[in-house]
């Protein structure tokens, strides 16, 4: 039976599942918006260093009222704190870290993902273009790029496509896609269904996905 959750519950569910992608000891960049929520779910058993592309390695908790520092923000322009052992640096250094393959995993939001790993997440033609920020650099630099997004749009149409219709953020850059309905890997032979979410069978996920899905040999149904 397909399960419908409200928007907030959907975001939390995706964030919780995405947290499992983060390995102990890794350097992580979380995109603005839903990916930022993942930070709230990072297990205490893991030692993880969060990178913020505006020049901070080691993002801490949000500050208390007393700790508020106008010179200390994350890439989403929210006030943050820095953990013990953190470092500050300029934007060129920050993107050297990113492009140079030093970030273990980047988790970004998405509008569309295609079978070949193309990602579109920065502009809708005809609407005001706000800019790509650091997304185009991030998708090429991190050792692993994970995209998190809702499986279908407001009209109920698949956002997982044979080919992206929106202008791309990166070509062939996505390694894994996590939605409210499934976990899907991008492989050389196309998209492979790894898991489905609670309330979703493989067949139901296939039915609401425009792209072709094959099922992984160790596929797990209702895994999260």
């Amino acid at each position: 039976m397909a399960v419908e959750l409200d928007k907030k519950a959907v975001r939390e569910k995706i964030a919780k599942r995405a947290e499992k992608e983060i390995q102990d000891g890794s350097y992580v960049n979380l995109g603005i918006g839903m990916p930022t929520l993942i930070a709230n779910h990072i297990s205490d058993n893991k030692e993880v260093v969060l990178q913020s592309e505006n020049g901070l390695l080691g993002i801490g908790e949000y500050p208390t009222e007393a700790e508020l520092d106008p010179d200390l923000i994350n890439a989403g322009k929210e006030t943050v704190t820095a953990i013990k052992g953190s470092s500050y640096f300029d934007s060129a250094e920050s993107f050297a870290m990113i492009r140079g393959g030093h970030i273990d995993i980047a988790i970004l939001g998405g509008m569309e993902v295609a079978e070949n790993g193309d990602l579109a997440n920065w502009m809708i033609p005809g609407k005001m273009i706000k800019g790509m920020g650091g997304a185009m650099d991030l998708v090429h630099g991190a050792k692993k790029t994970v995209v998190i997004m809702e499986h279908v749009n407001k009209a109920g149409e698949s956002k997982v496509l044979t080919e992206c219709t929106l202008p791309l953020t990166g070509k062939g850059v996505v390694n894994r896609l996590i939605t409210d309905r499934a976990v899907i890997d991008v492989t050389e032979t196309g998209l492979v269904l790894i898991e489905t979410a609670e309330g979703w069978s493989a067949e139901e996920v296939k039915a609401c996905t425009e792209a072709t899905l094959t099922i992984h040999e160790s596929f797990k149904e209702e895994a999260f």
Binding site: E53, S91, I98, M132, G134, A135, M136, D137
Partner: peptide, 20 residues
Amino acid sequence: VLAGELEVELTPQGTLAEKI
């Protein structure tokens, strides 16, 4: 921008930092 009064050149953030 919509009124055509302002020209915009959007550049990926890392590319912008490196161009500078």
